[in-house]
Computed example of a mutant assay.
Amino acid sequence: MTAGEAVRAAGTVLWRYRRTGEGGPSVDSIDGIEVALVHRPRYDDWSLPKGKLKAGEDFPAAAIRETREETGVECVLGDPLPSVYYRAGGRPKEVRYWAAEAGSGVFAANREVDRVEWLPPADAARRLTHDHDRPLISALLEALAQRA
Protein backbone atom coordinates (compact mmCIF):
# COMPACT_ATOMS: atom_id res chain seq x y z
CA MET A 1 0.00 0.00 0.00
CA THR A 2 1.49 3.34 -1.04
CA ALA A 3 1.27 6.57 0.95
CA GLY A 4 -1.54 7.93 -1.23
CA GLU A 5 -3.46 4.67 -1.55
CA ALA A 6 -6.76 4.49 0.30
CA VAL A 7 -6.97 2.33 3.39
CA ARG A 8 -9.61 -0.33 2.74
CA ALA A 9 -11.74 -1.42 5.66
CA ALA A 10 -15.04 -3.14 6.32
CA GLY A 11 -17.53 -3.19 9.15
CA THR A 12 -21.06 -3.79 10.26
CA VAL A 13 -23.99 -2.18 11.93
CA LEU A 14 -24.52 -5.16 14.20
CA TRP A 15 -28.07 -5.54 15.49
CA ARG A 16 -30.19 -7.91 17.52
CA TYR A 17 -33.69 -8.07 18.92
CA ARG A 18 -33.85 -6.36 22.32
CA ARG A 19 -33.27 -8.68 25.25
CA THR A 20 -35.99 -8.76 27.88
CA GLY A 21 -34.38 -11.16 30.34
CA GLU A 22 -34.08 -14.89 30.06
CA GLY A 23 -37.05 -15.14 27.68
CA GLY A 24 -35.15 -13.77 24.68
CA PRO A 25 -36.18 -11.06 22.23
CA SER A 26 -39.01 -8.72 23.18
CA VAL A 27 -40.61 -8.30 19.76
CA ASP A 28 -39.89 -9.32 16.20
CA SER A 29 -39.93 -5.82 14.71
CA ILE A 30 -37.46 -3.03 14.07
CA ASP A 31 -38.97 -1.17 17.03
CA GLY A 32 -37.45 -3.84 19.25
CA ILE A 33 -33.84 -3.83 18.07
CA GLU A 34 -30.54 -2.84 19.62
CA VAL A 35 -27.32 -1.85 17.88
CA ALA A 36 -23.84 -2.75 19.11
CA LEU A 37 -21.27 -0.01 19.61
CA VAL A 38 -17.65 -0.62 20.53
CA HIS A 39 -15.48 1.58 22.71
CA ARG A 40 -11.89 1.84 21.51
CA PRO A 41 -9.60 2.95 24.36
CA ARG A 42 -6.81 3.98 21.97
CA TYR A 43 -9.07 6.71 20.56
CA ASP A 44 -11.51 6.95 23.50
CA ASP A 45 -14.37 6.81 21.02
CA TRP A 46 -17.61 4.93 20.39
CA SER A 47 -17.72 3.38 16.96
CA LEU A 48 -19.21 0.60 14.88
CA PRO A 49 -17.22 -2.64 14.56
CA LYS A 50 -14.81 -2.28 11.65
CA GLY A 51 -11.25 -2.83 10.57
CA LYS A 52 -8.75 -3.04 7.75
CA LEU A 53 -8.75 -5.81 5.20
CA LYS A 54 -5.97 -8.38 5.46
CA ALA A 55 -3.98 -9.33 2.34
CA GLY A 56 -6.19 -11.32 -0.04
CA GLU A 57 -9.33 -10.76 2.06
CA ASP A 58 -12.52 -9.41 0.50
CA PHE A 59 -14.76 -6.79 2.10
CA PRO A 60 -17.54 -9.15 3.34
CA ALA A 61 -15.05 -11.56 4.94
CA ALA A 62 -13.29 -8.65 6.65
CA ALA A 63 -16.60 -7.29 7.97
CA ILE A 64 -17.47 -10.66 9.53
CA ARG A 65 -13.97 -11.17 10.96
CA GLU A 66 -13.69 -7.66 12.41
CA THR A 67 -17.14 -7.90 13.97
CA ARG A 68 -16.22 -11.19 15.63
CA GLU A 69 -12.83 -9.86 16.81
CA GLU A 70 -14.24 -6.63 18.23
CA THR A 71 -17.52 -7.85 19.73
CA GLY A 72 -17.06 -11.60 20.25
CA VAL A 73 -20.26 -12.12 18.27
CA GLU A 74 -20.77 -14.14 15.10
CA CYS A 75 -22.96 -12.40 12.56
CA VAL A 76 -24.83 -12.91 9.32
CA LEU A 77 -24.38 -10.14 6.78
CA GLY A 78 -27.54 -8.61 5.38
CA ASP A 79 -27.96 -5.67 3.06
CA PRO A 80 -24.96 -3.55 2.13
CA LEU A 81 -25.13 -0.10 3.68
CA PRO A 82 -23.52 3.10 2.42
CA SER A 83 -19.74 3.23 2.43
CA VAL A 84 -18.01 5.89 4.50
CA TYR A 85 -15.03 7.89 3.26
CA TYR A 86 -12.76 10.02 5.43
CA ARG A 87 -9.11 10.72 6.16
CA ALA A 88 -7.29 8.78 8.85
CA GLY A 89 -3.67 9.44 9.66
CA GLY A 90 -3.47 11.74 6.65
CA ARG A 91 -4.61 9.03 4.24
CA PRO A 92 -7.96 8.46 2.57
CA LYS A 93 -9.99 5.64 4.09
CA GLU A 94 -12.92 3.71 2.64
CA VAL A 95 -15.08 1.63 4.97
CA ARG A 96 -17.76 -0.58 3.44
CA TYR A 97 -20.58 -1.52 5.80
CA TRP A 98 -23.30 -4.14 6.01
CA ALA A 99 -26.33 -4.63 8.17
CA ALA A 100 -25.48 -7.68 10.25
CA GLU A 101 -27.73 -9.71 12.51
CA ALA A 102 -26.01 -10.88 15.68
CA GLY A 103 -25.66 -14.56 16.36
CA SER A 104 -24.00 -16.30 19.27
CA GLY A 105 -20.93 -15.17 21.10
CA VAL A 106 -19.69 -13.43 24.19
CA PHE A 107 -17.65 -10.25 24.39
CA ALA A 108 -14.25 -10.30 26.05
CA ALA A 109 -12.37 -7.03 26.47
CA ASN A 110 -9.17 -6.87 24.46
CA ARG A 111 -6.45 -4.43 23.43
CA GLU A 112 -8.56 -2.82 20.71
CA VAL A 113 -12.00 -2.80 22.33
CA ASP A 114 -12.64 -2.55 26.05
CA ARG A 115 -16.46 -2.26 26.02
CA VAL A 116 -19.44 -3.19 23.88
CA GLU A 117 -22.84 -1.64 24.49
CA TRP A 118 -26.17 -2.64 22.96
CA LEU A 119 -28.41 0.40 22.56
CA PRO A 120 -31.69 1.30 20.90
CA PRO A 121 -30.93 2.86 17.49
CA ALA A 122 -31.62 6.49 18.51
CA ASP A 123 -29.37 6.15 21.57
CA ALA A 124 -26.68 4.47 19.48
CA ALA A 125 -26.74 7.31 16.94
CA ARG A 126 -26.30 9.85 19.75
CA ARG A 127 -23.49 7.87 21.38
CA LEU A 128 -21.40 7.50 18.21
CA THR A 129 -18.38 9.77 18.38
CA HIS A 130 -17.96 10.42 14.66
CA ASP A 131 -20.62 12.24 12.66
CA HIS A 132 -19.86 10.17 9.54
CA ASP A 133 -21.09 7.02 11.36
CA ARG A 134 -24.54 8.35 12.33
CA PRO A 135 -26.26 7.98 8.93
CA LEU A 136 -25.47 4.26 9.04
CA ILE A 137 -27.99 3.78 11.86
CA SER A 138 -30.74 5.28 9.68
CA ALA A 139 -29.58 3.17 6.73
CA LEU A 140 -29.88 0.05 8.90
CA LEU A 141 -33.42 0.94 9.92
CA GLU A 142 -34.39 1.57 6.29
CA ALA A 143 -32.91 -1.76 5.21
CA LEU A 144 -34.74 -3.65 7.97
CA ALA A 145 -38.04 -1.88 7.24
CA GLN A 146 -37.81 -2.85 3.54
CA ARG A 147 -37.30 -6.51 4.31
CA ALA A 148 -40.23 -6.67 6.77
Rank of each mutant, 00 (worst) to 15 (best):
72 G>V: 02
59 F>Y: 10
82 P>Q: 09
13 V>I: 12
9 A>H: 03
144 L>S: 07
66 E>T: 05
30 I>V: 13
33 I>S: 04
74 E>T: 12
117 E>T: 14
138 S>V: 07
111 R>G: 08
19 R>N: 15
73 V>Q: 07
4 G>W: 08
136 L>M: 08
112 E>M: 11
52 K>H: 10
65 R>D: 01
132 H>R: 12
63 A>H: 03
38 V>N: 04
50 K>S: 15
143 A>H: 03
21 G>Q: 02
38 V>C: 15
100 A>E: 10
108 A>M: 10
143 A>P: 04
39 H>A: 04
63 A>G: 05
58 D>C: 04
7 V>R: 07
104 S>N: 13
89 G>R: 00
46 W>R: 06
15 W>P: 01
85 Y>W: 13
68 R>M: 11
143 A>W: 01
71 T>N: 07
61 A>H: 02
106 V>T: 15
128 L>R: 08
145 A>I: 07
127 R>K: 15
58 D>H: 06
109 A>C: 09
88 A>F: 11
67 T>D: 02
49 P>L: 04
68 R>T: 11
46 W>H: 06
72 G>T: 04
24 G>H: 09
55 A>I: 15
35 V>P: 01
6 A>V: 12
46 W>V: 05
89 G>H: 01
126 R>P: 01
60 P>N: 01
72 G>N: 02
10 A>P: 06
107 F>E: 12
123 D>T: 14
19 R>M: 10
81 L>H: 03
72 G>Y: 00
49 P>E: 13
142 E>N: 09
68 R>W: 13
68 R>C: 03
29 S>C: 14
96 R>Q: 13
40 R>L: 12
50 K>F: 08
42 R>Q: 12
39 H>N: 05
33 I>N: 01
85 Y>A: 10
38 V>F: 05
18 R>W: 06
113 V>I: 14
53 L>D: 07
95 V>I: 15
19 R>V: 13
132 H>P: 00
6 A>C: 08
135 P>H: 09
24 G>E: 14
92 P>H: 02
119 L>R: 09
79 D>V: 03
142 E>M: 03
60 P>A: 00
94 E>R: 11
73 V>A: 04
36 A>H: 04
20 T>G: 14
88 A>R: 13
78 G>P: 01
88 A>C: 02
47 S>K: 08
87 R>F: 12
121 P>R: 01
85 Y>H: 13
93 K>I: 06
41 P>I: 01
88 A>E: 13
132 H>S: 06
21 G>M: 09
77 L>K: 01
146 Q>M: 10
72 G>F: 02
57 E>R: 11
119 L>S: 07
130 H>Y: 15
142 E>G: 06
5 E>G: 04
44 D>F: 00
21 G>T: 03
109 A>N: 06
123 D>R: 15
100 A>N: 05
37 L>T: 01
5 E>M: 09
32 G>R: 10
145 A>K: 14
11 G>Q: 04
132 H>E: 10
148 A>E: 14
87 R>T: 15
100 A>S: 04
126 R>H: 09
28 D>R: 13
42 R>M: 09
79 D>G: 03
82 P>M: 10
81 L>C: 07
90 G>D: 10
145 A>N: 12
105 G>N: 09
104 S>Q: 13
26 S>F: 11
127 R>H: 09
134 R>P: 03
144 L>A: 05
51 G>D: 11
87 R>Y: 14
67 T>R: 02
65 R>N: 00
32 G>N: 11
31 D>E: 15
93 K>A: 00
116 V>D: 05
